[in-house]
Every structure is written in C-alpha cells, then in structure tokens.
C-alpha cells in the first residue's frame, strides 16, 4: 500500500520522548530520546529484543504505564481529523479518558486475558460506547459489522462470554473492539504472538483488509520479522530504549545499515537459508540503569571500533532518496557485510 508521507498528513508525532521506571537500584531508562512521525494510513513496526522498550513506548504514549513508570520528557503530538494538534502528555485525566479509544485504541498482547471474563462481549461493547457517548443502537450495528469484517459469526460473538471463544476468535474480537469508535491510530502489541500459525495468518489477512477499508494508522510491535515485513510500511529497530534505525521496510530489511538490525535479521530463520547460517547476537542487552557510554550496542557489536566506545552516534540519513535514518558509525561496513 502506498502512503503519502508529507508533513500535512502526520497523525502522531513523537519528539525526544524519554520514559523510565523507578526501581530500587535507580531509574531504568526504558525509552530515551525517541522521535518519529506516523502518517495517515501508515503501519510502523517496532522490532527489537524483549526489554528494548517497545511495549513501554506504546503504553507510555497513551499514558498507560504501570505506577512505577513515567514519561520523563518529550512530546507526543496528535492531530485530530479537523487539523487540531494536541500533546497527549498534557491532556487532563478527563480529556485523556475521552481521547483514549476514540482517537487511539490498542490491541494487547494476551488476547486470552484482555477481555473481562465475567462480562459478555456485548457488555464490553456497550461499556466502551457509553463511555464515549455513542448510542447503544449505533454501537451494536457497528460492532456486528466489524465482527463480520474480522470473519466472526457476528451475533454469536456479540452474545458470547470470553471463555466461550477460542484464542483466535478473542484476538479478532479485540481487533474489532479496537475499531469500534473509528480511531485514527491503533497500537498493537504483538497481536499474533499467542496464537497458532494459521490463526496468525488469518489475523494478518484481516488486518490488511481492514486497513485498506478503514484507513487507520498502526504502530505494531512484533518479534516476528516476517510478519513485520509483510504488513509494515516502515520499520523501526529499537535497542536499549532508542530507535537505532528506521526506514521503509525494503530499505531496512534488504539494506540494513545498523549492525543490530543486521544481527536480528541473521538470527531469524529463512526458508532459503540453511540452518548453519542462523547467528544469534552474542551477549545480552545492556543495563538501562547505567547504560554504557558511546554506542549502547558496542559491547556486542562485531564492527565496534574505538570511537563507538566513547562517542554516541547521531542519526544520519542513509540515502538521499528515502527517509532511511540510522545511528551507527559503521554504516557502510554493515551494508557491505550483508
């Protein structure tokens, strides 16, 4: 899907966003200095190891971090359909409550636990509608048509309790529920991780189709690079709380310029490659309470030189023709190693 990337159709814009958790040992800088623009209709996939800050980032930008987590700095500017801009981080609690789900909704990781076990799906639909002033009849009609779109038996699911549905059904129910109020942005935290491969396929198909019909933007977290490659327009690689490489999906996957992205790709199995070509990245992610100086990846990087140990690389455009940016001192060597 081709999307227009112009400053006019940016729906969500993050500028220098940092988030941290208070731990006994000190502050855990889970997200530092993240900036990016999400355009209308764009799907952005965040990839990276567990603990790199992906989930913190998307929970933090709708202010749903757990009690110990805070957004330390930066702004998250959201543009309403009528062109008004607002900083989500500055909304009052009441404004935030109205903003959530109507403008920006979320599909969570554990489909099995994301629905209240004692309520019917219909109650959850009505609760959501009522909280945002949508009337009952409209909510019901909208929900039924969405259930049909995600290939569920609409009436049956509408009247069902969560435990009466399979994992795949629940995940699709959540997807439909996320679109109930026609949000511009949908955040997805590994929506396909907890389901089997066939269900995963059908959810991806449904998602692609919905995106075409309803035209919303998506920020998508995935450990599965194949899934990310299939549905994303833009890939952002996160390492130790920072976005270290970001660009169009073909650019990042076929012409990776950061050693860490390359490492992730080499660790993923491919049909065309033999098993001996799978390489994991040695070592483990750095301590985020006292992050290493210089490039945070230098301890695990095979390209690391003296300057990587002291000087933190800044974002540089990788090419002149695309908006592929990367923060690495050895982009050319990485590109050549591919």
């Amino acid at each position: 899907m081709d999307i227009q990337k112009t400053p006019e159709n940016v729906v969500l814009s993050l500028r220098n966003v940092s988030m941290s958790y208070q731990a006994r040992r000190g502050r855990v800088r889970a997200v530092s200095n993240v900036s990016f623009d999400l355009h209308a209709g764009e799907t952005l996939a965040l990839i990276g190891e567990s603990g790199c800050g992906k989930s913190t980032l998307i929970l933090g930008l709708i202010r749903q971090l757990s009690k110990t987590g805070v957004v330390d700095a930066g702004e998250v500017v959201y543009r309403y359909r009528d062109g008004r801009d607002t900083d989500i981080l500055k909304l009052s609690d009441r404004q935030l409550r109205e903003f959530l789900w109507r403008e920006c909704s979320m599909v969570f990781q554990g489909a099995l636990n994301s629905l209240n076990p004692v309520l019917r799906v219909s109650s959850m639909v009505y609760d959501t509608a009522q909280a945002h002033g949508m009337d009952t009849k409209e909510a019901r009609d909208r929900a039924l048509s969405l259930f049909e779109k995600v290939r569920l038996d609409p009436l049956r699911v509408f009247n069902a309790y969560p435990h009466e549905m399979s994992g795949g059904m629940r995940q699709r129910t959540l997807l439909a529920l996320a679109l109930l109020l026609r949000p511009q942005v949908v955040l997805m935290d590994e929506p396909t991780t907890a389901v089997d491969i066939l269900t995963q396929r059908s959810i991806i198909e449904v998602l692609k189709q919905l995106r075409q019909e309803l035209n919303f933007s998506v920020i998508f977290i995935s450990h599965d690079l194949a899934v990310a490659a299939e549905i994303a327009d833009t890939i952002a690689t996160m390492y130790a709380g920072e976005i270290i490489e970001m660009g169009p999906v073909e650019e990042v996957f076929y012409r990776s310029r950061h050693a860490y992205t390359l490492g992730l790709l080499e660790a993923a199995p491919r049909l065309s490659a033999g098993s001996q070509e799978l390489n994991s990245i040695p070592g483990s992610p750095p301590d985020l309470i006292q992050p290493p100086p210089g490039c945070k990846f230098h301890l695990r990087c095979r390209f690391a030189s003296e300057e990587c140990k002291t000087i933190q690389p800044t974002y540089t455009p990788a090419t002149t023709i695309s908006d592929h940016i990367v923060a690495c001192h050895h982009t050319d060597e990485v590109l050549a190693a591919r």
Binding site: I62, Q64, L96, R97, E98, F99, L100, W101, R102, S105, M106, F108, Q109, G110, N113, S114, L115, N116, P117, V118, L119, S123, D127, T128, A131, H132, L174, L177
Partner: peptide, 22 residues
C-alpha cells in the same frame, strides 16, 4: 494486575464502571 483492567482503562471507561464491573 490483570490485562483486562489495563485494556478497560485504555478504552477510556469511567472509573466508577471500572471499579464495579471490572
């Protein structure tokens, strides 16, 4: 600590409904 509470919060439900039904 359950996920459905986080989800309900993210859905913008009023605190009173969250407290009782969820």
């Amino acid at each position: 600590g359950e996920d459905y509470i986080t989800v309900a919060r993210a859905r913008g439900l009023p605190e009173s409904r969250l407290l009782t039904a969820y």
